[in-house]
Design a protein around this nucleic acid. Sequence first.
DNA 1: TCAAGTTGTCTAGTATCATAGACAACTTGG
DNA 2: CCAAGTTGTCTATGATACTAGACAACTTGA
Lengths: 242, 242
Amino acid sequence: MSMQDTASSGVALWRLVADGIERGIADGRFAAGDRLPGEMEIAETYRVNRHTVRRALAALAERGIVRAERGSGTYVEAQKLAYPLRSRTRFSEIVGAGGREPHGRMIETSEDVATRELARELGLKTGAPLVRIEAIRLADRAPICVSTTWLSAEHFPGAGTVFAATRSMTKMLEHYGIRDYRRGATRITAGIVDATDAARLDLPLGRPILVVDATDLDLEGKPLVTKHSRFAAERVEFLVEP
Amino acid sequence: MSMQDTASSGVALWRLVADGIERGIADGRFAAGDRLPGEMEIAETYRVNRHTVRRALAALAERGIVRAERGSGTYVEAQKLAYPLRSRTRFSEIVGAGGREPHGRMIETSEDVATRELARELGLKTGAPLVRIEAIRLADRAPICVSTTWLSAEHFPGAGTVFAATRSMTKMLEHYGIRDYRRGATRITAGIVDATDAARLDLPLGRPILVVDATDLDLEGKPLVTKHSRFAAERVEFLVEP
DNA sequence: TCAAGTTGTCTAGTATCATAGACAACTTGG
DNA sequence: CCAAGTTGTCTATGATACTAGACAACTTGA
């Protein structure tokens, strides 16, 4: 393969090689600690120059996914965070269960007004005042996801401040007298990270993300908050439980 | 932004712009039929040259996502297929419900032996004989997903032939006396399409895919088949129902 | 009709991507 | 120690990506 004979995809060849290797690690062809094939061998399987492979490996090494040892080989070191969907498990518990250290913080908060879309999700009128909360969650200092949360400014005045102090959505809702809530419809798709999220998630541009749109309801089915979360696909996998 | 001041990501600038616009369409900032901002305006928001924006729009136009009208503007024309998870709805019903024409066919089938991983999923021994079925599903001629299915060659001899004839997993299992089954654990993550799948899904290299690993069980909880499906993220969204 | 704004199409120049070859530095196994 | 195989680093060349500027062709609304 070369840049000429393939239809130009806007993705550098070395990126395709790096993605291929990373996928091999993700689906278990290369386990943590394994030695990868030599640079020449990888170059042959992908039909590229050895320098292109080196570029790919350098990128993976910089992200801590592989480690090169001169004269010996290149070795794997990485694994994903299993993330159950539809449970009430908190992020901290999910991360803790994997033996990792959870961490979260607010990035920013602001007042906003409901677009038609947001109003529909939250059962409000278009233009209704909202609180927008931008937050990030990490496991062992590796950013897992950034999420934008919207909720009614009328029903939850000062929600941003409360969230910043408690660092927990559950505790924030408790502050307003909400003891329990359940997950409404959840929408999942994938995309490519944008510049802002790339910086926050410490991802190179062009990496895939899992996009989750979800609304939480109170026990009567009334919408409380709606979230738009972007997960670093390379660090997490979702589990839909039967 | 320019190629110099950002850490080189291996993704062309025009691709980032195209992905950004596509994301805007996906999350409703631009609805079907809407007019996009002018090329100059887009160039300013992304801090790139107008030619780079034109490259991005040309790529989107070629994929049928936008349509340029000289002297007037560039307009949106696209929408995603809503794909419920965890339901027993068949692919054909999902597609039909969206007013589109479903289609599916087998790509190839072969005999295989179980890796440790596959054996664990299917409750077999490592090295057990398997049937592997590679299939593709389309909606209105647009490829939605390719999937690799594995099942025991002992319990389902000639499954590939049966599937090729019936074009339906449900009917194929009926042929072996399986009347009903349910979905076991489902694992979802995202990645970048590889060369083989790119050709099958009619996607440019470097596009995001949704990767779904799932196992179907009989009513006693015994594993029947395990699948590894790759969805074109730009054409589908998953709905996790409450 | 006309002006403003839009997309379409040229020409250049600079930086990056990918290829190619050669050799150094190092590790491993015999 | 030595030979084979590995990663690390250098030079060089052609193709592609991005920027920059100018102008043509066309649409829309006043």
